[in-house]
Design a binder for these strands. Structure first.
Lengths: 187, 187
DNA sequence: GCCAAGGGAAACCGATCGGTATATCTTTTT
DNA sequence: AAAAAGATATACCGATCGGTTTCCCTTGGC
C-alpha cells in the first residue's frame, strides 16, 4: 500500500499543471511525465482527459473549501468575525507564490459553454462557497443573510480577479473595507 | 478597396472564436475557415498565432471600453450618475446571448504567467477601465476618488465573474446596491 | 498587353494531441 | 507455485497543431 495511490499521484500532479498552465495547454504526456506514471495507468484510472479534468476540479473544490473554512475558523471565533476574517484568508492566498487565480474561474474561461460538465462543476463550487457564507450570516443573525452572503461573495470574486489579472496582491484590502461597511449595516 | 480589409476580417472572426471557445482551443485552421481567408494571407498579416491573439485583445479593448463609455454616457449625465449607470450597462452586457465573461479575465486564465504579453495586455485593459472610473470619481468630486474607483471596479469584476461562472445574469443588481451605498458615503 | 503583387487552394512539414495496443515485468492473492 | 492484477516502457494510431511552401489565378497599374 503506497503512501499515495497511483490515482492520487495523477490527480495531484494534474492539479498543479492544470492550475499553473491551463487545461488545454497541458497535455497528457506532460502529466504522466511529471506524475511518473505510464500512460496506460492513467487511462486505467480515467476514461478520458475530460474525466481527469473533472477529478482534479473535484479535488480542488475539496482542498480549497477546506482551506478557507479551516483558516477562517482558526483566525476568528464568532460568525460575524469570520465573515470578515475570510478577507484575511484570501489575502494570504493571494500572496502564495503559486497563486494563479481561482481555478474555477480559470476553468470556466476554458470550458465556457454553460452546460459543459466542467462549467457546471465550477458553478457548483461557487454555490458551495456562497452557502458557507450564508450559513455564517445566518449564524451571525444578519438581517438579510442571503443578500449579505451574495454581496460578500461578489467582493471575494472581484478581489480574486484583481489579484490575478493585475497582480495586485493587496486587492483584498479594499474588499475588506467594503465588507466592514456591509456588516455594520447588516445588523 | 473592400468594406473590410483582410486583416480586419481575420481579427473580427478570431475575436469571436477566441471569445466563445477560448484561445488554445481555437485552431488557426478554424479561424481561416470562418474568416474565409487563406492561411497564407493570415500569416502575411500576423507573424504567429500569439500576435493574432494580441491583435484581437487590442481590438477587444478598444471595442469594449468604447461600448462601456458610450452606453454609460448615453444613460446618464452627471459623473456621479454615471458611476452608478455603469452597473446597468454591464447588466445589459450580461444578458447578451453572446456573453461569455470578460475576455481579459478569460485570457489571463489561459496566459497566466504575469510577464506574458497577453497577460500584460489584460492588466493594461483593466487599468484603463479603472482609470475611467477614477476620472468619473474625480469629476464627481468624491472624497477619495482613487479608493472609490478601486472599490467600484471590484464590484464590476465580481459581478462579471458571477454572471459568467454561475450564469447569474442579474449579478449586477447586488453590486449596484453596494455601489449606491459607497456613493452615499463618498461625498 | 504586360507584369508584379496578393490572394486562394492545397500539399506538406515536424511536432504534438488524445488515446490504444503490445509485450514484459513486478506484485499480490490464493 | 501458479495465476491474476497492475504497472512499465514503447510503439503506434489518426487527427490536429502552428507554420511553410508551391502553384495557380486574379487583379490593378503602367
Amino acid at each position: 500500500m503506497p503512501a499515495l495511490s497511483k490515482r492520487e499521484q495523477i490527480v495531484t500532479e494534474a492539479l498543479k499543471l492544470f492550475y499553473r498552465n491551463g487545461f488545454h495547454a497541458t497535455g497528457i504526456d506532460r502529466i504522466i511525465s511529471e506524475a511518473k506514471v505510464s500512460k496506460k495507468t492513467l487511462y486505467n484510472h480515467f476514461r478520458s482527459k475530460d474525466e481527469l479534468v473533472l477529478a482534479t476540479l473535484r479535488k480542488r473544490d475539496e482542498l480549497f473549501r477546506n482551506y478557507i473554512m479551516r483558516e477562517t475558523e482558526l483566525r476568528s471565533r464568532t460568525p460575524r468575525e469570520r465573515l470578515l476574517a475570510i478577507f484575511d484568508v484570501i489575502e494570504a492566498w493571494f500572496q502564495e507564490s503559486s497563486f494563479s487565480g481561482c481555478m474555477f474561474i480559470n476553468a470556466s474561461a476554458e470550458f465556457s459553454e454553460s452546460d459543459h460538465p466542467c462549467h457546471i462543476l465550477c458553478a457548483e463550487h461557487k454555490r458551495l462557497v456562497r452557502e458557507y457564507l450564508r450559513d455564517l450570516a445566518v449564524q451571525a443573525e444578519a438581517q438579510a443573510p442571503e443578500e449579505l452572503s451574495k454581496q460578500l461573495n461578489l467582493l471575494i470574486e472581484g478581489a480574486t480577479v484583481e489579484a490575478h489579472v493585475c497582480g495586485d496582491h493587496d486587492a483584498a484590502s479594499p474588499a475588506k473595507r467594503i465588507a466592514e461597511m456591509l456588516l455594520n449595516q447588516a445588523f
